[in-house]
Each structure stands twice: as structure tokens, then as C-alpha cells.
Design a protein around this nucleic acid. Structure first.
Lengths: 230, 230
DNA sequence: CGTTGTGAAATGATTCACAGCT
DNA sequence: AGCTGTGAATCATTTCACAACG
């Protein structure tokens, strides 16, 4: 009986779970909206229309409205969206209204860049602990964080209550590290290696891959090449 | 008459311009295929089926075949695709069978990580010159490359025949840098800032944004949250 | 056999267009 | 007037399913 009720209207968002059916691309755009709204709010705009928001981001006004509509009704007809308001709502929806303790695995070039990356801290993401396999790096301090041996991962994750694991190790090591993170109950993974990490579907993975981006760029450029060699 | 023949089987790829109508998502997946094929080839596999390729990448076999079909007919029924062969074809299609001279603007954390990034070199992408605005960094040498003043950009790009510009500067400076790169006839831009660069549509831009990836991850994790608090 | 290449069907996302609110 | 929220229509992508081939 309870289950019947629950099934009947799963749109009630008992706590937080409307997002059951949000188109992937729409979800991707949320962070873009967030960023633009922060700019507008900082510049003192009180409201913004779907048209303005879309123009700034290279999207149509209809798209902006549709995307936002997946999460509720935030706008006022004839006026637009109140920047501060929408900003706050989006922060909640996206989950960036609270801290996200992270652990970093790999203190190589990428790892070090991340540790020094300012915008990172903004939004509540913070690297609470750093782990490395290489004995040479363990024990050193980078940007104020002590580098610890990879064997300490389980203890470290538990100690800082880390929810996100950042994988910045050489490709060969990635699968093993991913398995460790899963074993240690991490909730999501940011993967800087060019490997597909296969982890249970309950653990989301986002990839940041410079090589892929470059290759796609090469393809884009080649595709552009004017076909005139007459 | 010639045109009739050309239209009849546009699988002939006269030079390089079938890509007129390739779905964006399919183009995105090309680099994934490339990477997996390199692995298989290195491990000595002679052939690979669309099923195997898809499994390794989390795609269906049909999807793999459709994607590849946009560029020609590479497989043998009953056998699959010859790894080395397909690899070579894809390299050509993607344009990574030749060098891509790049210039880097910004020698901050990200810039330095890129300069030290090994896998980067692989595939023909190479950072030929580095430019910075900060007077303190100009003149120093990082990973063997001399850092030059941003004013030298035009000369530098011409001197090394750079086709790709990599933007790794603070967000505020990004639009100006993008404009300079456009003015200097760069052909494509890899953008590490969280700004939408608006450049003419003839100049492709690919973004690599850690903050966006993190925010999306936070959203994904929040969306996952089991709805049981009974 | 097993596997490709490909139309046709199904699914998914974006755009249109407009009623209704301010 | 200007703008949102949204069903309906269009457009794009993925999946299905199968004939043809080695």
C-alpha cells in the first residue's frame, strides 16, 4: 500500500529526488547557469530573463526555460528570474550549497596543479588529503597538504569523511585506484586519466581528459577545412 | 556525370570532407575508439568486433558500427575490424596522423602542468611556445620552454606555424586572449577557463573545465541519494 | 556459424508557438 | 508591453532487426 502511493506520484520530491528524469544535457548545463548567475549577481543585476541568460551562454531562451522547468517554477512572467533567488535554488538543486570533502590520489603534475588551483575551493570542494604511491613524494608537503602513502587511503577517507575521490595517477594505475576508492565507500569519482573506470552504477564518474579534448579539436579543425582545391 | 558518381557512393572520401554530416556525439566517441584500438593493437589483437569495442567503452555494438559507418566501410563480416587498419584509418579521419603545433598562453598552474604532461606529446600535439602577461614569469624557462611576453604572440604563432592555441589564463583575461588568438589566425582553441569564448564559428573551441566537472559530479551524487529514511 | 552495414522504429532533445500572468 | 511555463511539432540520436557476406 505504501509502495502504491509512492509510485503514484513520484513527483512529490519527498526530500530530494525529482531529478529522477532530467535529460543529461540539461543537467550538464546547470553549472553554466550557475556561473553566469554568479556573474550577474555580482554585477548587481536584480533579474535576468531566459533570453539574456541564453544569449550569454549560446543557448536559446526556450532551452533555458525548459531546463529550469525540470526543477520547478522559478520565474515571474513579465519580469524574468530573480538572480539571487535562482542562484540559491540552483545551488541547492546541484548540491553545491554544502561542503564536499575530497581526496586526491596522485601528486604528479595534474595533482599538484589541482592542489594549487584556486577556483577549486570555491563551491565547497576541498582537497582534504593527498595520497601517492611513489615513496619519493610521500612525506613531502604540497600547497600545505602532507602527501600520504596510498596504503593510508581507507583511514584517510574515513578520517575526513571524503565523498569525492580525484584520480590523477598514470593510466596504468587507474583501475586499481578506482577499485580502492569503491572499496572505501567513496560516493563519486573525478577521473583525470584516459581510462574508462568501471565501477558500480551507484558511483558516478566524471572524466576530464585533455588528450580527448585535443583530439576532438584536431578533428573539428580538419572538418572545417574549406573543400576548395580546384 | 562526375557528380553523379560521387553522390552514388560518397564513401569514397575524395580527400577529407565526408564529415559534413557526422552527429556530434559520434565525433566525440572517435577518440575513445582510437584509444581502445591502440591498447588492443599493442596487446597484439589482430581484429576486434564492434561488440568487443563497445563493451570496453560502455557502448552497444550497434552504436559502434553506426559511428564507424559515417566514415566508410572498415570491417569484414564474420571477422570484425582489423585493429591496425582501423587505427590507421581513424588517425587519418581525426587528423592526428600529422603534427599539431600548439602555443600555450598562461604559465600558471594549469599551464605548467600541461608543459610537463607527457601523454600530451603523443599524437603529434606539441607546445611550441609559451606566453605570459606577468613580468615575473617572462624570461624564465619551464620544462625546457622559454616563457615569452604576451606581446610576442603574433610573431610567435607565425614563427612556429601554430594551429592550436591553449588558453590557461585567469578567467578575466580569457576573452582578450581569445580575441588575440583569433586575430593571429589560430585555427582552434583549447580553453581551460570557465568562460564561453565567443569566436567566429570557423574556429572550433573545446573546453576543459574542472569546476564544471566537479559540480556535475556533486549533482550526480545528490541525484543518487537513496530515498530511504524510514 | 559470427559479424558487418543499414534501413526502419523507438527514444530523446530542442525548438516552436502561444495561453496566461504581471 | 514583456516574459514565463508548457504542450505539440520538429529534429537528432540510438536501438532494433535483419539481409548479405566471409
Amino acid at each position: 500500500m505504501q509502495s502504491m502511493v509512492a509510485r503514484a506520484h513520484c513527483r512529490t520530491l519527498g526530500r530530494m529526488s525529482i531529478r529522477s528524469r532530467v535529460p543529461r544535457p540539461a543537467a550538464r548545463r546547470l553549472s553554466l547557469y550557475l556561473r553566469e548567475l554568479m556573474l550577474r549577481a555580482r554585477d548587481g543585476s536584480a533579474t535576468i530573463s531566459s533570453r539574456q541568460l541564453g544569449d550569454a551562454l549560446g543557448l536559446t531562451d526556450a532551452q533555458v526555460r525548459k531546463d529550469l522547468a525540470h526543477f520547478g517554477q522559478f520565474g515571474q512572467p513579465g519580469v524574468g528570474y530573480r538572480c539571487i533567488d535562482l542562484l540559491e535554488r540552483l545551488r541547492t538543486i546541484m548540491g553545491v550549497d554544502r561542503p564536499w570533502p575530497c581526496v586526491l590520489v596522485g601528486a604528479g603534475n595534474i595533482g599538484r596543479a589541482l592542489l594549487a588551483y584556486r577556483p577549486f575551493v570555491h563551491g565547497g570542494f576541498e582537497i582534504k588529503a593527498v595520497f601517492e604511491r611513489s615513496r619519493e613524494l610521500v612525506g613531502t608537503t604540497i600547497a600545505g597538504r602532507k602527501v600520504r602513502p596510498i596504503e593510508d587511503l581507507a583511514r584517510g577517507v574515513a578520517a575526513v569523511n571524503a565523498e569525492i575521490g580525484i584520480v590523477a595517477v598514470p593510466a596504468e594505475a587507474a583501475p586499481a585506484i578506482a577499485a580502492m576508492l569503491v572499496g572505501v565507500r567513496i560516493r563519486g569519482i573525478l577521473n583525470f586519466t584516459p581510462c574508462r573506470l568501471d565501477v558500480p552504477p551507484s558511483i558516478p564518474v566524471r572524466n576530464v581528459d585533455v588528450s580527448v579534448a585535443l583530439e576532438q579539436l584536431a578533428f573539428d579543425i580538419s572538418s572545417m577545412a574549406a573543400p576548395d582545391e580546384s
